[in-house]
């Protein structure tokens, strides 16, 4: 009986896949919210990596879990900030296209 869930490489490849597809989505999406969604995918890839190394190689199993908790907290704060940014930008420029946000106003 093959136990595939005890293999480190599966988790690492899945995390690399999440990172690559997040990068693809960040380049391809044409809206700011879509780019934020891709950022969440990349952060999840990082968290999955930390958890995999925490299970298989770390001497202290609390470290990876705490780092992943911090990643979740940072991601929540970042999502709130970015959504309010997008609302402010939309209110000022009346557009959601990142290509048209070209000027900086102090």
């Amino acid at each position: 009986m093959i136990i595939i869930s005890n293999n480190l490489n599966i988790y690492l490849i899945l995390a690399a896949f999440l990172f690559a597809i997040g990068l693809y989505g960040m380049i391809r999406h044409k809206t700011l919210i879509g780019m934020l969604v891709s950022t969440e995918l990349i952060l999840n890839g990082a968290g999955l990596n930390f958890m995999a190394f925490n299970k298989f190689t770390a001497p202290d199993p609390a470290v990876g879990q705490i780092i992943t908790l911090f990643i979740m907290g940072i991601a929540a704060a970042e999502a709130a900030i970015v959504v309010s940014f997008i609302l402010a930008v939309y209110r000022k420029y009346k557009t959601s296209d990142p290509e048209s946000l070209k000027e900086l106003i102090g």
Binding site: I33, A76, A79, A80, V83, L87, S96
Partner: peptide, 15 residues
């Protein structure tokens, strides 16, 4: 529960 709801909220309010 939280991040996806914030994103949906941002889509529904801002666009």
């Amino acid at each position: 529960g939280a991040v996806c709801i914030v994103l949906v909220f941002g889509i529904m309010v801002g666009f």
